[in-house]
């Protein structure tokens, strides 16, 4: 039918922009937290912690806008699914940013100790998780359920890496007790990365609902 701009379109565009801004800030927070880890940059870690307020504020703005749209525009069909997806996605992004903040806090503690020679595959795990978030946000913008499903599949890679690094860290701590404190901090960091991948998965499930009206959460492979 016609491509005219409806009154609700203006609000939905604002909502999408705010969500993408929120997602962009979360992406930056993860990237900076990991850089702070690899480069032992405490100043950068502190910046991640400071910037979290802006993310919280953006989440509130998304909430308010969603409520306004629901009350004033009474959306239906795909418009409604978009708003519902936004309502559920914003807290997931905010939690992702919280995990980045937690990583930054662990970095600050790690940086007070001598560096472990290797960080195992933590940068690789961080790269996968960051790419998942990037792809998830892309899929959100383009309402692309296929891309969202593809992104969910990468969660298995993140989980596999988590398990491997976990085992390696446990082995290291068991064989060299001087590494226990630093090993414990790294265990927390990989757990946070693993949780971020889970949140990205939740976001992608919302994208599938938004695009297709299909509820896929709590389903297991190979059903998807």
């Amino acid at each position: 039918m016609t491509d005219h701009l409806r009154p609700i379109d203006h609000d939905l565009n604002r909502l999408r922009d705010k969500l993408l801004m929120l997602g962009g800030r979360a992406e930056t927070a993860i990237a900076q937290a990991i850089r702070a880890l690899v480069e032992r940059d405490s100043e950068l870690a502190e910046q991640v912690i400071r910037d979290d307020d802006k993310i919280d504020q953006l989440e509130n703005e998304v909430d308010e806008l969603c409520i306004d749209i629901l009350v004033l525009r009474q959306p239906t069909a795909s418009d409604l699914r978009f708003v519902i997806a936004a309502v559920k996605t914003a807290p997931a992004i905010e939690r992702i940013a919280d995990h980045a903040v937690n990583i930054a806090r662990h970095v600050l503690r790690l940086n007070q100790e001598p560096q472990l020679k290797v960080y195992f595959d933590i940068p690789e795990m961080a790269r996968i998780v960051q790419q998942m978030l990037l792809d998830g946000l892309d899929a959100f913008t383009s309402h692309d359920a296929e891309k969202a499903l593809e992104t969910i599949r990468h969660d298995d890679h993140a989980d596999a890496l988590y398990k491997r690094i976990y085992d390696e860290l446990i082995h290291l701590m068991a064989t060299d007790s001087s590494t226990v404190r630093r090993g414990a901090e790294l265990l927390f960091i990989i757990k946070h990365l693993e949780r971020i991948a889970d949140y990205v998965t939740n976001i992608c499930e919302q994208i599938v609902y938004m695009a297709r009206g299909e509820v896929i959460k709590h389903r297991e492979w190979p059903e998807l």
Binding site: M1, T2, H4, R6, I8, P75, T76, A77, S78, D79, L80, R81, R212, G213, E214
Partner: peptide, 18 residues
């Protein structure tokens, strides 16, 4: 019908596209 219409015409009508 109001959340996941099957037909594009329904979707367009419900969302005010025509």
């Amino acid at each position: 019908l109001f959340t996941v219409p099957r037909e594009k015409l329904t979707e367009d009508y419900l969302t005010g596209r025509f």
